[in-house]
Simulated assay, not measured.
Amino acid sequence: MGAFLDKPKTEKHNAHGEGNGLRYGLSSMQGWRVEMEDAHTATVGLPQGLDNWSFFAVYDGHAGSRVANYASKHLLGHIITHSMGPPGPEGVTPAPAPAVETVKMGIRTGFLKIDEHMRNFSDLRNGMDRSGSTAVAVLLSPEHLYFINCGDSRAVLYRNAHVCFSTLDHKPCNPREKERIQNAGGSVMIQRVNGSLAVSRALGDYDYKCVDGKGATEQLVSPEPEVFEIERALEDEFVVLACDGIWDVMTNEELCEFVKSRLEVSHDLEKVCNQVLDTCLHKGSRDNMSVVLVCLPNCPKVSEEAVKKDRELDKFLESRVEEIIEKAGEEGIPDLVTVMRNLSSESIPNLPPGGGLASKHSVMEAVYKRLNPHREVDGNGVDLEDPW
């Protein structure tokens, strides 16, 4: 379940890059959790002659970060080995790109092999470390997108101005997952495996993978990923990978519409990803948060009109915060939460779709701090002198 801090840690880890006709940005934040258990992978240009392939992934750890961190460094290597075979001698012409079914089988085998490999680590084998991790990824070849999912992190493809594809969350209540769990002698209670674990597929979690007579993919928790192959199209705009700290508070459509609106006002993909995390924090997410945004050639471009509207919205919100504080007068200065509540009851035009007022929290907070420099406000917009 995880313990929580008194106030969220909002410092972010960022990265960005480009190549192979794409750009990417990523951001991760600890948030309200006591530990940061997320990890990620972002690789443009792969070994084994796959220079024009790329790989991105998000890993959402639980009960510790060991499995997530190890997978972020080594899962790709296992996938490539089982898709392409071991590296050949230097100077030898690389083998042709593997067939689609070979790649899909290599991905599945790579997951099973890394899970088997990690099981031999002494701390995981002896139960000193009971960590596990989801994994969601996209492997891009020149012709295909391979979406890979194990757990309840999620990937979406935005194509031709709508959500074209989404991976399926592996939850214990899903009929297929529940059947496997029960066949392995387990149960699903309060939507969790044996009343405890909230995901039905994951790397690690070896306490749930010790049923005699059952194979690796027949255990209470399975390390087997689902792999979906989609042909690339000119209309592809972007792919978003995120952990459930994001999806807990935003739907597929909301997140994609918000990302689209932010891409129309900024080229900076790190900034866009940071805005996603901040917006989810102010929408109420209490989990670690990680997001990877992969922009394809047809991704939304910055629009002068969109930039103008966004600036006008910021100025309007700044003026409204000033007005609310000025009108308070003798009644006393309201805390920022009260200001936000007042504004949420108003009909404000041109708020970012999917993000709403929460996505403009930093604008309003900046005005509030300028007008009330001696009042302390934490990273979630709660006035610490007068918490609600």
Rank of each mutant, 00 (worst) to 15 (best):
residue 245 G to H: 02
residue 285 S to Q: 01
residue 200 S to I: 01
residue 170 H to W: 02
residue 254 E to S: 12
residue 270 E to W: 06
residue 288 N to V: 04
residue 219 Q to R: 08
residue 276 V to I: 11
residue 197 L to Q: 09
residue 161 A to C: 06
residue 266 S to L: 01
residue 257 E to F: 04
residue 269 L to C: 11
residue 277 L to D: 10
residue 225 P to F: 09
residue 278 D to P: 01
residue 213 G to P: 09
residue 280 C to H: 01
residue 177 E to P: 07
residue 218 E to I: 12
residue 181 I to S: 02
residue 227 V to G: 05
residue 278 D to Q: 10
residue 276 V to M: 01
residue 170 H to P: 08
residue 189 M to W: 12
residue 234 L to G: 04
residue 275 Q to S: 09
residue 162 H to T: 09
residue 212 D to H: 12
residue 254 E to A: 13
residue 288 N to C: 04
residue 171 K to Y: 03
residue 233 A to N: 08
residue 221 V to L: 00
residue 231 E to F: 12
residue 231 E to K: 05
residue 195 G to N: 15
residue 187 S to H: 05
residue 246 I to A: 02
residue 227 V to F: 09
residue 284 G to L: 01
residue 198 A to S: 15
residue 214 K to S: 06
residue 250 M to L: 11
residue 285 S to C: 06
residue 273 C to R: 03
residue 274 N to T: 14
residue 164 C to R: 00
residue 241 L to E: 03
residue 259 V to D: 00
residue 293 L to E: 02
residue 201 R to L: 10
residue 194 N to H: 13
residue 209 K to N: 06
residue 186 G to P: 08
residue 182 Q to G: 08
residue 231 E to Q: 10
residue 227 V to W: 14
residue 251 T to I: 02
residue 229 E to M: 14
residue 273 C to L: 02
residue 290 S to F: 03
residue 177 E to N: 05
residue 208 Y to F: 15
residue 292 V to M: 09
residue 246 I to H: 04
residue 251 T to W: 04
residue 268 D to E: 03
residue 216 A to M: 13
residue 293 L to P: 04
residue 234 L to S: 12
residue 170 H to K: 10
residue 249 V to P: 08
residue 204 G to K: 08
residue 182 Q to D: 11
residue 267 H to L: 13
residue 199 V to G: 05
residue 251 T to S: 15
residue 199 V to I: 13
residue 233 A to F: 14
residue 269 L to N: 11
residue 201 R to M: 14
residue 176 R to K: 12
residue 259 V to C: 02
residue 208 Y to S: 02
residue 161 A to L: 09
residue 277 L to Q: 07
residue 183 N to H: 14
residue 173 C to L: 05
residue 257 E to H: 13
residue 165 F to A: 12
residue 242 A to E: 11
residue 241 L to W: 08
residue 198 A to E: 15
residue 193 V to Y: 15
residue 180 R to Y: 00
residue 276 V to F: 01
residue 280 C to M: 00
residue 258 F to D: 00
residue 246 I to R: 04
residue 256 C to W: 03
residue 221 V to C: 05
residue 239 V to W: 06
residue 205 D to F: 15
residue 274 N to P: 07
residue 272 V to N: 06
residue 167 T to L: 11
residue 257 E to T: 09
residue 226 E to I: 15
residue 181 I to W: 14
residue 237 E to N: 04
residue 215 G to W: 09
residue 171 K to M: 00
residue 229 E to V: 15
